[in-house]
Design a protein around this nucleic acid. Sequence first.
DNA 1: ACCTGAACACCGTTCAAGT
DNA 2: ACCTGAACACCGTTCAAGT
Lengths: 203, 203
Amino acid sequence: MKKASERKRNTYHVGNLRVLLLSAAREMLEEVGPTKLSVRAVSDKVGVSCTAAYHHFANRTELVGCLAAKGFDELATVLAEQDRGTPKEEKIRTASLAYFSFARKNPALYQLMFGPEFSDSEMISELQSSRREAFGELKRIVAEYLDKDAQTAEVRGAALAGWSHTHGLASLVIHNVVRPPAEITDERFVDMSLEGFRSIFAG
Amino acid sequence: MKKASERKRNTYHVGNLRVLLLSAAREMLEEVGPTKLSVRAVSDKVGVSCTAAYHHFANRTELVGCLAAKGFDELATVLAEQDRGTPKEEKIRTASLAYFSFARKNPALYQLMFGPEFSDSEMISELQSSRREAFGELKRIVAEYLDKDAQTAEVRGAALAGWSHTHGLASLVIHNVVRPPAEITDERFVDMSLEGFRSIFAG
DNA sequence: ACCTGAACACCGTTCAAGT
DNA sequence: ACCTGAACACCGTTCAAGT
């Protein structure tokens, strides 16, 4: 009883509502899917009126854009971690694997990151820079693999090819367009596809 | 005046409402984007109450699923057409190009086809079979390129790799994650990426 | 400065009723 | 058999008002 006013205060002026909303959103994301994450439901979960969210985010796109930006940050981190200490010849394979398994572990987040929500100009700069950084990490890895400068056309092309391939593979699997046989590990599946490319270029 | 009853009849019993709804949806799709296509707006455009749509489609997903299925049919057709008469060594490149430019010409449709709307079981059989047919076309082309039987593991792997790559490339471009330089044609862009792969495997 | 309630325009979907 | 209107539960977003 004596806590009534205190509790009311707590829920009225939360203070760090922005981060509470973001982490609630992240928690709900994988349950409800990338398209059905609503400002109202997220606010509800935090225990705050849905209009409160609009003091911290301009709109739903911005909220969801922050989530996506964090996703790219995580992805860049994972890529860098897995790359550390990997011998040169294995770098592409290791990066592809790290990328693919990040996508599989966070399917809804991954769909958000590459989904149709930020098609054009309605995109926050935070997302744009996080994205760029993740792609930068990829280019860095490819540059080391090829032993070329990261700014060369060759590295850019190879990074684009590698990104396209792994992103495509992850996207097809996540959307159930392609179903990897149940007995096959992520590792073997990525290898299968890389091997497939090798045989295309062998001819 | 004398046409009043006739007109009423026309809009009451349209008869082929199903196809009218689908073509209205297809028309709106590229304008409003893949996520914002609503049953209500489509029905409005046809001039019919939105509940009428529910006599022809179980729900929004089914309506939008039919659209996606038609997309896969078109894609399969385009691939087959472009492949006809292409010399063996050029088959992969031609197919990649046909695929990529289909995606670029129909960005919203493409996003729908590979979007998050049909993540799991809520998918109609029509879509599943159209998809399978499009992938079958791809496998056929790869099989001819490699001069192997379409059922071999090698062809399956190569088709998976090729599909992943081109789908990934198209997806990155459509979502503005990667922006091909304005002065570069689709053709050169696809070539750049294929060339990038070649240099990855040259090492 | 930060939060709320009421309100508006839009959804998907259902159900009883009309032709 | 096919279509409609009213209704419900959900959205995003805005605005005037509270603390």
